[in-house]
Amino acid sequence: MSLFYSLFAALMIVGIFIGLCLLVLKSTRKFGIQLTIGCLSILLLMSLANRFIFKFGDEHEAAITPQTFHKIKEGMTYEEVKKIVGGKARSESNLYAGSKEYVYSGKDGLESGSTVTLEFDDDELNFISETGLISKREDEQNEDEDTTTVIENETEEDQINDLVENNLKNVSIDKIELNQDMSKNKEKQYIALVHLSFNLKNTPERAKKITQTYSEDLAARIGDKIKSVDQLIIFWKIPYLNDNAVLAKNSYVRSGSHFIIADQAYQPPLQ
């Protein structure tokens, strides 16, 4: 609607320009006056309509404070969110059919440069996250140093447990199993079976993407830090989508100092 409004206004401006040009010749002067006055009148009416009815272009970019952040709830529409925060997001993008992501700047939060990310499916809010508004950012350098350090006397299970707990957010560990890799001639080479649950409410599409990313991250860390693991299989439950079933399985095999993907399998609704 706003695009049509803008195009029509541009057409009126062109009409005014043509009308002014027609004033040069005496034979077309009368029509030029009529055209100019007509287009100016329409532009004036459009301006008044926009000012009091449509209000195109009046919407400003809003910032979210900690107070307004706590008022935003899942299930709201984008228009409801805009009424709460006082305006539109600083950016928006299409994730997939029917799904949009809006990013707002934060204001008066714990850190400067804070942001709030909102995701909508069919104009219904289903994912809310913030960085630096009500929770502090983790220092990436310190995180890498602190969370990927493996203590020599820890068991492989303990090491994997630490890597999961320190690096994967909204994830709980159901079980970690280590089976000796009988296909290897070397002693103490294991197949690790890691059973995890992703506990954040989300859409199937985004849950699949996040579990894929987390699997790759964990495989990279285990490949680098735990040399005794030759094969890795990560099982994912997503309680919000299905309380009991394993919905995703990612299998990796060692290739030198890192793991490479060997197989991926998904069950509905992640398929």
Rank of each mutant, 00 (worst) to 15 (best):
residue 7 L to E: 10
residue 239 P to F: 07
residue 154 E to W: 08
residue 9 A to K: 12
residue 199 N to Q: 06
residue 45 L to R: 02
residue 233 I to G: 00
residue 181 D to L: 14
residue 94 N to C: 06
residue 165 E to H: 04
residue 84 I to E: 02
residue 117 T to K: 11
residue 40 L to S: 14
residue 42 I to P: 01
residue 18 I to H: 04
residue 63 A to Q: 13
residue 239 P to Q: 03
residue 161 N to K: 14
residue 146 D to Q: 13
residue 218 L to I: 12
residue 34 Q to S: 10
residue 167 N to E: 06
residue 228 S to T: 12
residue 252 Y to S: 08
residue 241 L to N: 05
residue 105 S to A: 15
residue 262 A to L: 11
residue 179 N to L: 10
residue 35 L to W: 03
residue 200 L to W: 05
residue 76 M to T: 07
residue 151 I to N: 05
residue 106 G to Q: 02
residue 192 A to S: 09
residue 105 S to P: 12
residue 172 S to W: 04
residue 125 L to V: 02
residue 119 E to H: 13
residue 255 S to D: 13
residue 256 G to K: 00
residue 62 A to V: 05
residue 138 E to K: 15
residue 26 K to H: 09
residue 44 L to P: 04
residue 14 V to I: 15
residue 137 R to P: 02
residue 182 M to Y: 13
residue 186 K to L: 11
residue 24 V to F: 12
residue 201 K to I: 07
residue 105 S to K: 11
residue 241 L to A: 08
residue 265 A to Q: 10
residue 252 Y to V: 08
residue 161 N to R: 14
residue 32 G to D: 04
residue 4 F to D: 08
residue 209 K to V: 06
residue 118 L to Q: 03
residue 245 A to D: 13
residue 77 T to W: 01
residue 161 N to E: 15
residue 149 T to E: 10
residue 193 L to C: 02
residue 190 Y to K: 06
residue 25 L to C: 06
